[in-house]
Write a protein that binds this DNA or RNA. Structure first.
Length: 427
RNA sequence: GAGCCUGUAGCUCAGUCGGUUAGAGCGCCAGGUUGUGGCCCUGGAGGCCGUGGGUUCAAAUCCCAUCAGGCUCCCCA
């Protein structure tokens, strides 16, 4: 089709009626589950200071080095948030949430922005939900965060998933490990794939999740990070695994799992769906004990996860999970003539105030067209109004499913429908 | 950033050895039923064939560019 003059920006999709209802279902399940886990919602601005993201997420990451939507206005540097862990920690520090005592258990849902080349399951504006436990270094926190994530997918019906876990240790341990990796791969540098050769200096850990065939033999023999963990890191990892087993959470250890962001320490995890294509990561997370300090706050151990809503919806589609609830209206008032039309408008208010959802024709169309429209809108009832009904105060109430009609006074109709209404009655 | 594929009505798609006014199904609008939806029948509206350029007597069809989408790589949600 010819392109309209104005369209959305590349990689930024409208979510239209029909699709929105699925999002609402998912969001309700997320909120409901978060409540069950005693997590509170937090909402932060879409725009953050560029420096926060650069420091928090890490200068070397792809996100910061090439995927930020950033701009300048006056002396201020703005960036559209590419993820929400750093902003949540910023908020925690800024508002001294640690002073509220205990841990802060927070969850969020909202849009994120990354300036990547879009493809299926990877948009420039995409949506994530996630949760963070701030103020605990205990393995129970790691495991409960994983349980929250898994429970949401379970409730939605996505159970065919693989949970991978690993420990990425402390920065010191990681540095030793990275050195060992370089030593391991360097003798074979010329035999590695092109991308992996580039990673050798920049980020050797990335070689581990290479999909290139020629890299595989060297990856198999590569040292694993577990062997470089100190006593405390090892103990933490061991406890996490124990707790996972006690709570019957199936997982797979993946010694090659590394996270894309710099702030992770110790536990790292990722949830994969074999039902998706190349973008098979549903969500991921881990522990980030050093992030708060890194961005100028008090030392705050923390753990969290983030999940993509688009990916979740893709998985639902692949699994034929029906999230769609049909939109419906309780009453559609069908009118014949100007007087009836005026009457209908005033009665919509009476119905709605009783919590009965109600609508009417806005186009002055024929009764047949209005009935058709009522059908399309999934009206449970129609009220048919003409001159005769007005003078008799006897209106035709038609049950659209049963195709039965009854002549009733308007007050009787209201009483009748009050009992059948599905809308929430606002007090 | 790299490679490959695709782009025809609102939607899903036919139509290419280049050849008169570009089609179907669904959807939309109207009528059949002058006050009654879903099924059925009839009619109608709606396309510079993604955009720009080129080849040709002639282009939806061939060529180039560009934009958009998809798949893979990269990376990740």
């Amino acid at each position: 089709m010819a392109q309209p003059k104005y369209t959305t920006h590349v990689g930024m999709d409208d979510i239209l009626p029909g699709e929105v209802e699925k999002w609402q279902t998912v969001e309700e399940i997320i909120r409901e589950t978060a409540r069950e886990f005693n997590f509170d919602e937090i909402r932060t601005p879409i725009l953050e200071q560029t420096e926060l993201i650069a420091r928090g997420v890490g200068q070397q990451t792809d996100i910061v080095s090439k995927e930020m939507f950033a701009f300048e206005r006056g002396d201020d540097q703005y960036v559209l948030r590419p993820e929400l862990t750093a902003p949540v920690v910023r908020s925690y520090i800024e508002h001294h949430l640690d002073q509220r005592g205990g841990t802060q258990n927070l969850f969020y849902i909202g849009p994120m922005f990354r300036a990547e080349k879009p493809q299926k399951g990877r948009k420039r504006q995409f949506h994530q939900f996630g949760a963070e436990i701030l103020g605990s270094s205990e393995p129970v926190a790691d495991v409960d965060i994983i349980q929250l994530m898994m429970r949401i997918y379970e409730k939605i019906g996505i159970t065919n998933t693989e949970l991978k876990i690993n420990s990425v240790g402390t920065p010191e341990e990681r540095e030793q490990y990275v050195q060992a990796l370089r030593d391991h791969f360097r003798p074979h540098e010329s035999e590695l794939s092109e991308v992996s050769q580039r990673r050798l200096e920049k980020n050797p850990m990335r070689i581990l999740d290479s999909k290139e065939d020629e890299d595989q033999p060297f990856i198999e023999k590569a040292p694993v990070i577990i062997d470089f963990l100190g006593k405390q890191s090892m103990q933490h990892y061991k406890r996490v695994k124990e707790l996972m087993e006690h709570n019957e959470i199936p997982y797979q250890e993946d010694p090659h799992l590394v996270r894309g962001l710099d702030y992770y320490t110790h536990t790292a995890f990722e949830l994969i769906s074999p039902d998706l294509g190349s973008q098979d990561a549903l969500g991921g997370g881990g522990r980030y004990d050093l992030l708060a300090e890194e961005i100028g706050g008090p030392s705050t151990p923390a753990v969290g996860f983030a999940s993509g809503i688009e990916r979740l919806l893709m998985a639902c589609e692949a699994l034929d999970i029906d999230l769609h609830r049909e939109a419906a209206v309780d009453v559609y008032i069908v009118t014949i003539g100007q007087k009836a039309n005026d009457w209908a408008l005033s009665k919509l208010k009476v119905l709605r105030n009783k919590g009965i959802s109600a609508t009417m024709d806005y186009q002055g169309r024929s009764i047949k067209s209005q009935m058709k429209d009522a059908d399309r809108e999934n009206a449970r009832y129609t009220i048919i109004v003409g001159e005769q009904e007005l003078s008799d105060n006897a209106f035709t109430l038609r049950d659209m499913q049963a195709s039965e009609e009854e002549a009733l006074a308007f007050e009787e109709i209201v009483d009748r429908l009050s009992q059948h209404s599905t809308a929430d009655v606002k007090s």
